[in-house]
Nucleic acid binder design. Sequence first.
DNA 1: TCGGTGTGCGGACTTCAGTCCGCTTACTTC
DNA 2: GAAGTAAGCGGACTGAAGTCCGCACACCGA
Lengths: 203, 203
Amino acid sequence: MSAEFDLPQIEPESFERADAARNRERILCAARRLFDERGAGCVSMDEIAEAAGVGKGTLFRRFGSRASLAAAVLSERERVFQEAIIRGAPPLGPGAPPSERLIAFGEALLDTLEAHSELLLAAETGPARFAHPAYRVHRLHVMLLLHEADPECDQEMLAETLLAALGAELFIYLRHMRGISLERLKEGWREQVRRTVRSPEPV
Amino acid sequence: MSAEFDLPQIEPESFERADAARNRERILCAARRLFDERGAGCVSMDEIAEAAGVGKGTLFRRFGSRASLAAAVLSERERVFQEAIIRGAPPLGPGAPPSERLIAFGEALLDTLEAHSELLLAAETGPARFAHPAYRVHRLHVMLLLHEADPECDQEMLAETLLAALGAELFIYLRHMRGISLERLKEGWREQVRRTVRSPEPV
DNA sequence: TCGGTGTGCGGACTTCAGTCCGCTTACTTC
DNA sequence: GAAGTAAGCGGACTGAAGTCCGCACACCGA
């Protein structure tokens, strides 16, 4: 079932002039390097443009905003993650019971946050972030698993609220400002999934 | 039990010179008016300073940031809300069973979001927002109710993740970009609370 | 190979949040 | 009431995101 995603793809940009493609690579490359060296919060768009050897206008023409650029830098990793979810081994991929897959999904996302929270924070800007292809894939995945686990529930709403618990702002606050361990965050996620996924108590 | 909050209070600012107090009032007044007239997203700090008849430096000295100013504008409403939670009538106030109080709490927050989402969005900036006094009161309230409902659960984590479902960004996306009705959002909250609040299934 | 054309380039410009610092003035003390 | 002083004021300044538009050159057809 979970194979019929129509993965909204992020990059190819149907037909692109050669100079445009080259500049895009340059920009992504420079951005990746700078974000990596100094942390996403300490790199300005001007610096990225300069390091890439292109004008600022070009940078914004390609990527539209700082948040989009950060998302584009993350997209390779995201592609691998989606592959693991859709066709990988259980419990992340198909084969395990839905609640276990949901748990594995959240744990994997928390691991990504642990490794790249700053970049993920930069990619999460304003309410529009929920419309981003990557987020939509996550949502759809969670919805399908919830449906499998409990066809009666309102998967659409529950998926949104479950995913809200995995947002970068909350993660950074809990992990770095409150010092909560990654393991405890994962246990919190497991508990939330266990509580959410059972069919409702009979009244 | 819920009376032993040590409410982190927001405004009084122990002793203030007369001109400082006057300027603060002017600023709050102008901000309230402009936010109201044109929407929080379309008002710059310069405009507020000008409308208040003070310099920009004064504005920032008083309120520190745009987000703090928005929070301050909301604080009167927040005070009333806290009063209703702590000493008001059930189901929001004490007297009702904890799950009902939790439901009423979320519904009240959703009503506030419906009326002031833009302002709440402006007040929610970056991971630091979770350290704001108002948020901490909400969290403590939810934790106490969860503890009452189910002393075994990890109230701290569950409170954070439940509250994440009531964030302004998610609300604006669901309500205004996806067009989901307020009633459905409330029903989603009720379902989430029902599922969260029961004690875990025996294994 | 050589125009014609429209996509894409670049960097000056705008806007806005937030900072800095020399000047002013409300309160205190005598 | 006068003088001292520190809290407070204001607006010029900084830095960063995002826009605009005249110019260049990559690609296409001949």
